[in-house]
Design a protein around this nucleic acid. Sequence first.
DNA 1: CTTCCACAGGAAGGTCTGGCGG
DNA 2: CCGCCAGACCTTCCTGTGGAAG
Length: 421
Amino acid sequence: MIYFTKKIVESDIFGRLLKSNGMFIDREAMRHTYIPSELPHRVKEINNIASVMVPALRGETPSNIFIYGKSGTGKTAVTKFVGNQLINKGKETGKPVNFIYINCEIVDTQYRLLQNITNHFINEWSERVPFTGWPTDEVYTKLIKMIDKNGGVTVIILDEVDKLKGDGALYSLSRINSNLKNAKVSIVGISNDLRFTEILDPRVRSSLGEENMIFPPYDAGEIKDILEQRATIALKPNSVEDDVIPLCSALAAQEHGDARRALDLLRISAELAERENSKKISKKFVKLAQNKIEVDRVLEVVKTLPSQSKTIILSVLLQHRHNTKSGIAGAITPGEVYGIYKELCKKTRMDSLTQRRVADLISELDMLGIITARVISKGRYGRTREINISSSAEEILKILKEDEIFRSLTDYRFSGQTRLI
DNA sequence: CTTCCACAGGAAGGTCTGGCGG
DNA sequence: CCGCCAGACCTTCCTGTGGAAG
């Protein structure tokens, strides 16, 4: 009988979590993919894009647009926002507009881009373009046929367009209007790389860049407004302490005015507060969230590193642990790291790289923010770099243990444990 | 002041992969 | 299919250097 009740309790874990959940009204509104009904501090940008797009509602071709701006400046949100309004107005006035959003980081080849756009026009009578198998120009012909049959104006958004491999796709898309009799296509390219068009074919550049727009970063005050707006949608009233939103805004403003980062920061703070059953989000949780974001980033990077770099990190970690255990304070030199590195390579039967190359890989790890390597001079004892690990040493070790080759080595005691002063 | 450590980091060249045009 | 080229990845060889020790 007791066993039975216990079982009930255990099987209702989600029920309990749902009940205890006190922070969020609408969790989705705290994500950067959410499009709110109003976009603060982007009125000018919305109007600019809308005025370029408005010919679509009269059945004319809008100019192609190129939008620049760093991450988290609202490029995607603004274009999607304008797009939704365009679709609605089109339905209302009886001149429907096709609006296609494609993220080129996911759809990154010419074939898949054309396939994606074509399948947008597919109805139940026609066959879909398969993932693979057709010649690219056949997909293109099919696309033209479908668009023409559909008629009207089509707006295609290419987000992260700089991630597209090769400019063949852009070239064929930019010339598509000359192949259409019955329909019109306009392209909006979005990129966070200001120099992107410089590497394009000049014909593509002039065709796509009929209108150029730059989204400036938000300042701290603007980010604050955005956060406040989202917080009122996403969170229960009075769940945020007064100084939290200004803090999140200030931190994100330091990071080139990235609103996405500010939202992540606040959302994760809320999640952490919720997990601790706290009634309010306080500064403490923002600090924790900031740390969590950083640790997650580092771990994500470490996971995807090639095994040579992983071996170097492991060498640094082992030397660091040895130093702390034997009470030697402070930093590690590349010489020590290289010694352990070579031993580890022998153990794992990996080819070892030269010291020169390892030095470059150490610099690379420094740039990724996993370790810090600062050049110092120890006088008579040489000019070298001082290597320190980022705070999440134990977590990194855990990640490395997931790798078959390193599993046995994370507790490895290397022979080069002697160290001069 | 000079010396000299333990590297930093530039230059040039080799090897391998993968895309592309013919 | 082949040759070509660009670019990633490494090696070899090299010169340069901040500052404590002598």
